[in-house]
Amino acid sequence: MRKTKSIAEIGVYPPPAGGISVHVERLCDTLEQKQIPFIIYDGNGENGEKKRAVVPIPEIEKWAWKYLWQKNEDIIHNHFLRWQIRFTLSLLKLKGKKIVHTVHSLRNDGTQLGLAQKVMVFLTGLLSDHFVAVSEEVKEKLLELRIPERKISVIPAFIPPTTDLESDIKKIPDYVLKTFTKYPQVIVANGGVGNLYNGEELYGLDLCIDMFTKLARENKKLAFVYCITHIGEQALLEQYTERIAAHGLEERFLLVQEKIPFYPLIQKATLFVRPTASDGDAISLREAIYLGTPAIASDVVKRPNGVITFVNRDADDFTKTCREVLYAPPTDLLQYRQEQERYVEQLLDILL
């Protein structure tokens, strides 16, 4: 009988929840359903209670070199962003392992690489079996780094949620759920606070507050829930809280700091917004499309089919676009759902 190959999922696993860690979690849910053996090597270490067993790896570089000399899984699926880690793990090809890297972002890669770095990237491309780029932009950057095109596939990182919706709703505080009961229209967003990009709020909480302040005067049945994923600067969070209170909107604009499942809120929402100043292929946008919730995002990168865009960092255009969608939401989102469902099968075809 042919032995089922095992997979090493090397990256991060929630908590904390983020784009990459949620992708890894949902991929593992799918592998488990299909009875494909896997082990999770978790760069988040001992951070919080995990849904399933993981091998914590707090010192990633040291662990990667040690892993070369250990007994390994048959398929190495790496999610870490640094080329040093990609190169080290690609050396496992010399032991006959299959090496696949999902490249979630190349935002932090400099265009000018030193000679040693260029050699390292070249060898990584030579040894690795495949690179999964989460967007066309990432693919173009890989090609610029001379990764062979035949080894690159573009597959967005979105995987539909496989957990039980009712059990996840129970993890959401009552004060958040009551907002959806009290107000017929609720806008939701998530992201950090106080993370600056070119001097601007990266996740656009300031734009959300400005937009909501205007629309709240027009529509008394409107509320906003912003789930904070992390805080870069506490002083900025305090300023935003004061700004909301100054307009008397503290009961209608919630800043949620508890770590809760976010997709049930997207499903309940009237509108999901992502006004980021820089971005990759945001899983939350694809989640909204999959769940049938209208989504608005900045035009800072190419967005998925079905997402409505506004001019990046243009507060007036953001407000105008939100107003239009709230009054006349799109009715054709179902056509994009099947597109989102195909991605995980495409990924499994490459891995297996």
Rank of each mutant, 00 (worst) to 15 (best):
E59Y: 11
F122T: 09
N72L: 08
Q117L: 02
T111K: 11
H104A: 14
R86E: 13
V301F: 02
K50R: 01
D74A: 11
A245V: 05
I10M: 02
I155Y: 00
S167P: 09
G125M: 05
D210L: 12
T319C: 15
I228H: 09
L215T: 03
K178T: 13
T213R: 04
Q346H: 09
C208Y: 07
S153T: 13
L236W: 06
K3V: 06
E324P: 00
F310M: 06
T213M: 05
P16G: 04
D281R: 08
H130F: 13
D316M: 09
A8T: 00
R313Q: 13
C28P: 05
Q185T: 04
A288L: 01
D281W: 06
P173Q: 14
S90A: 14
A269W: 13
P160D: 11
L202K: 08
H247Y: 14
G292L: 00
T319S: 13
K220F: 01
K220Y: 00
D332V: 07
H79Q: 14
D349I: 03
Y263F: 14
A297N: 13
C322F: 04
Q33T: 11
I60N: 00
E49V: 15
A328E: 15
N219Y: 08
D316R: 07
E144I: 03
I99E: 03
E287Q: 05
C322Y: 04
D42S: 01
D74W: 12
W83D: 02
V225K: 11
I209W: 02
P304V: 14
Y343A: 05
K118M: 02
A216I: 03
P261W: 11
T179D: 11
Q185H: 02
R150K: 15
D29T: 06
I75A: 12
K182S: 15
M120L: 08
E136G: 10
L291K: 10
I10T: 01
N47P: 01
V12F: 03
V311N: 11
K118E: 06
L202N: 06
I169Y: 09
G48C: 00
I60K: 03
F38E: 02
